[in-house]
Amino acid sequence: MARFHSLTVTAVDRLTDDSVALTLAVPPELREEYRHAPGQHLALRRVADGADIRRTYSICSPAPDPAGEGPRSLRIGVRLVEGGAFSTYALKEIAAGDALEVMTPAGRFTLEPAPGLYAAVVGGSGITPVLSIAATLLARDPAARFCLIRSDRTTASTMFLEEVADLKDRYPERFQLVTVLSREEQQAGLPSGRLGQERLTALLPALLPVPEVAGWFLCGPYGLVEGAERALRGLGVARSRVHEEIFHVDASTASVSTSAAPAHSTVTVRLDGRGGTWPVREGETLLETVLRNRSDAPYACKGGVCGTCRAFLVTGEVRMDRNFALEPEETEAGYVLACQSRPTTEAVELDFDR
């Protein structure tokens, strides 16, 4: 069960004008709890003006060796979002020595290191989890290769430039880097412009043998991830080989279902080994109902993007307003996002422990 602990910030590194990397120290007694897979994220929490503000940020540091101890530190990248309550605080106020409330690692946008060729298409801050995935893979498996295709506005806005350059220096034969800038011409490399479906459909086969790629990792804004997924589908890549994580979705992108809700409904929940049944108020999501009765329910973004509130639907039926976190095989297996789920039957049962 995900839990929050207080971790101390040991370094705040400026990456670009609008982004920083935060390093968090993990004390010995918490290192097993913060053991993470490459690609997972952390939820950070602060209370401001009486409001509980939570945001998720991917871990960019390599995952610890499974045979060794848990991580002594964790590093995350934070990019300023216009009007963002947490990102503004992170860039303007957080300093070394501060204590932050940090949830234990979560997320399924991960790769278990294994031999083979892997590739990623990322945009902007989407580099963050992929940096951990690539660094962990190349360090652990000498038979693995990784191709990183990254899109940024300009060189000055590119996060983790030095860290990616270091991977290229350490693994020149196994790490391939392709950079595309949308608002700046490069002296060498690909011409500027956005990476959309049409461009990727032509570009990917020219860069690497698409059928031989064991896993594709798409991360960044919704438009880029959607375009890359469509390009791969058109190139015959099996859906099981494509993994997606979306960092930002415009409100207009959501397609909200209008299915009628029952006049009265209840939700029965199993959470951290304990159960309860409560009435769902009109207009509430199931997460909102649970939080009224169990403040320890897991959640972060409440926008259907991070997947922290994933739960198994034991009985009953729900509609999800939006879903940008669960893979098709997860929804087919019965998992839902509690923050986006509304009951369409009089009784619903969720299991957060499964």
Rank of each mutant, 00 (worst) to 15 (best):
S6M: 10
L7Q: 04
T8R: 14
A11I: 03
R14M: 03
S19C: 10
P27G: 09
P28L: 09
A43H: 03
L44E: 01
R46Y: 03
V47K: 02
V47P: 01
A48C: 08
D49W: 12
D49M: 08
G50M: 10
I59Q: 00
P62K: 02
P64I: 09
D65V: 05
G68C: 09
P71E: 10
L74W: 00
L74Y: 01
V78R: 05
G83F: 13
G83A: 11
F86M: 14
G97P: 09
D98N: 12
A99Y: 06
F109D: 00
T110H: 00
L111T: 00
P113V: 05
A114F: 09
V121I: 15
V121M: 12
I127R: 04
V130F: 07
I133T: 06
L137S: 00
L137Y: 00
R140P: 00
D141I: 03
P142Q: 11
A144N: 06
S151K: 03
S151R: 04
D152A: 14
R153L: 15
E162F: 04
E162M: 07
E163H: 11
D169E: 14
P172A: 13
E173T: 13
R174K: 12
F175H: 01
L181A: 10
R183T: 12
G193Y: 07
G193D: 14
R194V: 10
L195V: 10
L195S: 09
E198M: 10
P209Y: 03
P211V: 08
G215Q: 01
L218S: 04
L218R: 01
P221M: 07
L224C: 07
G234Q: 15
G234R: 14
L235H: 10
G236I: 12
V242R: 09
D250L: 14
T253Q: 15
A254S: 13
A254E: 14
T258D: 15
T258Y: 03
P262K: 01
T266N: 13
T266A: 13
V267G: 07
T268Y: 02
T268L: 01
G275F: 06
G276P: 08
G276V: 07
W278S: 04
W278I: 12
G283S: 11
G283M: 12
G283I: 10
T285W: 11
N293W: 12
R294T: 04
S295E: 15
D296P: 00
A297G: 13
P298V: 11
G307S: 11
T308S: 14
T308I: 10
C309H: 02
A311F: 01
R319S: 10
N323K: 04
F324G: 01
A325P: 04
L326H: 01
P328R: 02
C339H: 02
Q340W: 05
T344W: 05
T345A: 13
E346T: 15
V348N: 03
E349D: 08
